[in-house]
Structure formats: structure tokens, C-alpha cells
Amino acid sequence: MVKLLTGICTLLLLNGCASHSQTLYSELGGKQKVEEIVNNFVTEIEYDPVILPYFEGSDIDRFRAKLEEQICMVSGGGCSYTGDTMEQVHAGMNITETHFNHTVDLLINAMDKSGVPHPLQNRLLAELAKMRGQMLYR
């Protein structure tokens, strides 16, 4: 009986560890889902009169590619971000807290449209939020 209980406990422990070893990137759905989120985000921006002016003159294809890299990197997908620093990208934009928060709302809308569960959204947003100070008032 003790061996059976020990075996069951070991299996439960290993199963618990296995579920935590999965990266946020894979939990999100990997490359395909990240591309979907980014595409939805670009569409959200395209139809938003408040945030769209920040992207005037931007190379949207480059933005798309670099955001996909960045999300992959911060979510443990094994990618490297090859773009400019957040300070460089946002220099001269003078992004306010209000505009930053509004952009986060657009990203949440994009993730909702992609069917990303809220707990995963929160985890991704927590990773991306680490760059907040590099974007505001530049």
C-alpha cells in the first residue's frame, strides 16, 4: 500500500512539474497564435484615431515582425529580439500614461479576438509591462 501511494504521489508531482515546464509562448499557441495576436493588434491600431498617429510613417511590416520577435522572446519562445531598443523606438513620441494604457487596451482587445484566456493575457502583459518605463515620456 505504501508503494502504491508513493507511486501515485510521484506521478502527481511529475505531472505538476511537467505542466509548469511549458513556456508561456507554447501556452499561448506558439508562432501561429503570436502572429494572430500581432495582426489583430495592428488592426486595432489601424482603426484607433488616438493611437494611429503614433504610427504615421512607420514600416508596419517591420513593426509586425519586431513585435512578434519581442513577444516570442519575453514569453520564453526562444527568439531573440533584433530591433531597436524601446528608448530608441519611442524617442520623441512623448507617450503619456493615458496613451500607454489605451494601447494596452488595444492589445487586450487583440488577444480577446485571438481567444487568449485572461490568465495567459495577464502573464504576457506582466512581461511586456517591464518595458513600460522605456516607452513613457521619451
Rank of each mutant, 00 (worst) to 15 (best):
V104I: 05
D59F: 15
Q88F: 00
A65D: 05
N109I: 11
S114L: 05
M111E: 13
I71G: 03
L107C: 04
N94W: 01
D61I: 15
E69P: 03
F55Q: 09
E87M: 06
L107M: 11
T82D: 08
G76K: 12
C79F: 13
S58N: 14
N109F: 15
G77K: 07
Q70V: 15
D59R: 06
R62G: 04
T103V: 01
L107V: 12
G77M: 08
I60Q: 12
D61L: 13
Y81D: 08
D61N: 15
D105G: 13
G115Q: 06
G76S: 08
L107T: 14
T82V: 11
F63H: 01
I60Y: 06
I95Y: 02
L106I: 09
K113F: 05
F100K: 06
Y54K: 03
I95N: 05
G77N: 07
V104Y: 00
A91Q: 09
T82N: 12
C79T: 10
E68D: 08
G115D: 05
I95W: 01
S58C: 07
T103H: 09
T82S: 08
L106G: 02
E68F: 00
G57P: 15
D112F: 14
N109E: 09
Y81A: 05
S80Q: 10
S80N: 06
I95H: 04
Q88V: 00
M111F: 06
D112P: 00
G115M: 04
M73C: 08
M93S: 03
V89R: 02
P53K: 02
V89W: 00
I95G: 01
D84S: 00
T82L: 03
F55S: 09
N101T: 12
M93Y: 07
S75F: 10
S75I: 05
M86S: 11
F100S: 06
N101Y: 11
T96M: 03
G77Y: 13
L67G: 07
D112N: 14
H90W: 07
Y54F: 12
G115K: 01
E56N: 10
N101V: 13
Y54L: 06
G57Q: 08
I95F: 03
I108F: 06
T103Q: 07
I108R: 13
E69D: 05
E87D: 03
H102M: 00
F55M: 12
G76D: 11
E97V: 14
H99S: 09
T98L: 08
D84M: 02
S114C: 04
C72K: 02
T82E: 08
T103S: 09
Q88H: 01
A91P: 01
V104C: 00
D59M: 14
G83M: 03
D61Q: 11
G76F: 05
Q70I: 08
E87H: 08
I108A: 09
V89E: 02
E69C: 08
M86D: 10
V74P: 00
D61R: 15
N94D: 07
C72N: 01
S58F: 15
I60R: 14
F63G: 11
Q88N: 03
